[in-house]
Every structure is written in C-alpha cells, then in structure tokens.
Amino acid sequence: MKILVIQQKMIGDVLTSSILFKFLRAKYPNALLDYLINEHTLPVVQNNPNIDNFILFTKEEESSKPALLKFSRKIRQTKYNVVIDVYSKLSSNVITLFSGAKTKISYYKPYTVLIYTHNIRRINKADNMSSLAIINRLQLLKPLDIEVNTAVPKIYLTPEEISKSKHFLINKQIDFTKPIFMISVLGSGANKTYPFPYMAKVIDRIAKQTQGQILFNYIPNQEEQAKAIYILCEPKTQTQILFNVFGKNLREFLAITKHCDALIGNEGGAINMAKALNIKTFSIFSPWIDKDTWGLFEDNRTHVSVHLKDYSPEIYNNKTEKDMKKDALEIYRDFYPDLFDEKLKVFLQQTISHK
C-alpha cells in the first residue's frame, strides 16, 4: 500500500494535516506514507515518525505549468494506491489527476467531482472541542474506514535541539526561574496582524502583570516592523524585552518556544506550533478569520483566544468573509485591547501561578 497526502501552502495547514498520518500508520503499519508539502514548511513536520518521505513542492512548480506537469508525472511513477488531497486547489487537482491512484479523496467541490473517487462534504459546525480544521481533515479518512473524532497535531523536537536551545537562552541571560513569554508580534500579512499600537499595549500588560521576560517572534527581514512595535512599548516594558533573542530559522524558533511559559499574539502558524509543542497560548484573531475553524483545542485556560465578533457581533451583520477580509485593516481599529484586557489578565495569572 502506498499513500500520498497533499497539503501545500501555509505552515499551520501543513502541521494540522499531519494528524492524518498517525491514523494511517495505525491502519496500514507497513504502508508507504508520503507527504507532499511546500518546501518552506518542512521544519514543522520534520522527524514525524509516521511519515516515510517528504515530497517538496517548490516555487518553480507553483509558478510554471510545464514544471507542474513534469512534477505530476514524477509523482505518477511512484504508483500510489491512495491520494488524499487536503489542499484541494488547482495544483493539487492536477497532481491527483495524473497520479494514477485508484482511490482519490478530497473535499467536495462541484467543479472537481470527476477527479476524485470520494468527494467529502465539509462539516460547518463542531460539536466537540476540536476545531473544524481538525474535524474536516479527519473526515477525509472515512473512505478508508478510519473513524476518528479528534486529534492533536504534534511537533517532534530532538533532545539535542531542546538542550541546545536551553544553553542558548542561558547564554543570553534568560532566567528560568522567571516567566518567559514568546510574542507573535506579526501575522503572516497585514490583514492578519493586530495594529502595532494595540499590540504594544498588550505587551505592556504582560510585562507589568508578570514581570516576565519577553521574546519576540520574527524573522530577520521583519526586524524593522518588530522594532516599531518595541518602540511603541513603555520604557519599563522595553527593559523586559530581549529583542535580539530569537531563532534564526524555524527549528530554532520551535526549540526556543518549547522553553516558554506561553505564546501570545497574532493567531496563525506560531500559535498552532506552540499548541503542537504543548505550550499555553493566547491568540488574537484577525477580524476576517473564522474562529470556529482555527480555534484549536481552546478551553479558556490552556488555550484562549479573542475575536472581535465576540465583543461586537453587530459589525458582522450582512457581511461575508470576503467583505471582512477586504476591510480588515479598518475593522481592526475597533478591536481595542481594553475589550479583552480582563481575559488576558486571568490567562496571565493562571500561567504565572504555575511557575
């Protein structure tokens, strides 16, 4: 048995879809289980013991039709028995079509039903703590007679990575007797990034209440934006921010986050990764992102989130997700930190009380 799972694009999607492999391995212990992903997302699924091979989709294949067709023909040579297309977009439609697999599974879309042998309709409402992002992915296993209701993504760090990151933090004067907070200061784009002045106020709250050490999650080409948020913080807060303590790559970020008491900030890949590392999270959703889909495993204690819709539902009257996305930067202005200050205060108190 040879099975290919396709999940391109974003880090959070790739991490979330990796849950399928645990159950595929249990059902087919001797099967070849491969994962087709974008090359930049590999670090979040590296070392997963249930995945045999990673097939990396590059920018060339993404932007060139001839390259995509060549890539698809190469996939066909493996002679997969089953293809599970979680991504379900044009490029993965083509790859699946050319795969030659007898069983082809994806989500129902009226214009792709002829490509797949099983077209699974998405569920629109969750009836347990799992998010729709988890539930709908698990639905894709049903044609293989695998019935699962919930699952938790997991990131696999090596003992060496964890030890090395601890020594790195010690050398940077991190005090492990005091709280350590990782802040997701920037989203994946402007329309998923909490306004800089508001984020600074959130960080001020964290610093004042916990007297903790604050790390920023950013990559080198985002340093200017991260610095702008740092400058907006109060002078006392700035003394608690270790601005130059950050991971130079994704695996280093993961290993550093493993030592933090919580990750707080913009909902997105960093939040999902922290959850997969079993680190507490407080996420601030963009106004246009559906909380029911991406509010993974939230219990208002270990994992907490806030969304403008929770406080001002009238803003959403007669507006589609497309409308909200288009106006996200303007709508963000109504999402004042004061709205969720009490909720953040409680989360921080619960976090530091276990320190």
Rank of each mutant, 00 (worst) to 15 (best):
I162G: 05
D127L: 09
V185C: 14
I180L: 14
R122S: 11
I115S: 04
A262G: 00
K343C: 12
N278P: 11
N318T: 10
S163M: 06
Y107H: 12
K166D: 08
L132G: 12
T177V: 10
N278H: 14
Q240T: 11
D127C: 04
M10D: 08
L144M: 10
L144P: 02
R333V: 13
D52E: 13
Q213W: 06
K192N: 06
K70E: 11
K236Q: 15
V45S: 12
I162E: 14
I271V: 12
K325V: 04
A270G: 02
N50S: 06
I120G: 06
L138D: 08
D13P: 00
V5Y: 09
L36Q: 10
Q350I: 10
N217A: 08
Y230A: 09
L36W: 13
E234P: 06
L144Y: 04
Q350E: 15
M199V: 05
L20R: 10
T257K: 05
K280W: 01
I162C: 11
S106V: 02
L308S: 02
E342L: 09
D323W: 01
L15W: 01
I84S: 02
K65I: 15
D327A: 14
V44W: 01
F282R: 02
I105F: 08
I162F: 09
S91Y: 05
N217V: 14
S165P: 11
T210H: 00
T320A: 11
F21N: 08
Y194A: 01
R122P: 05
K192V: 07
I37Q: 02
L242G: 06
L186Y: 10
N48R: 10
S63H: 13
G100R: 09
K355P: 00
E62H: 08
A200I: 03
I256T: 12
I120C: 06
D175F: 14
N272M: 11
T257R: 04
F297S: 03
T112E: 08
K280Y: 03
E267N: 15
D127F: 15
A274N: 01
L90W: 11
T293Q: 07
M273P: 07
R25G: 09
L33N: 09
E62V: 02
M199Q: 06
Q240I: 09
P66G: 02
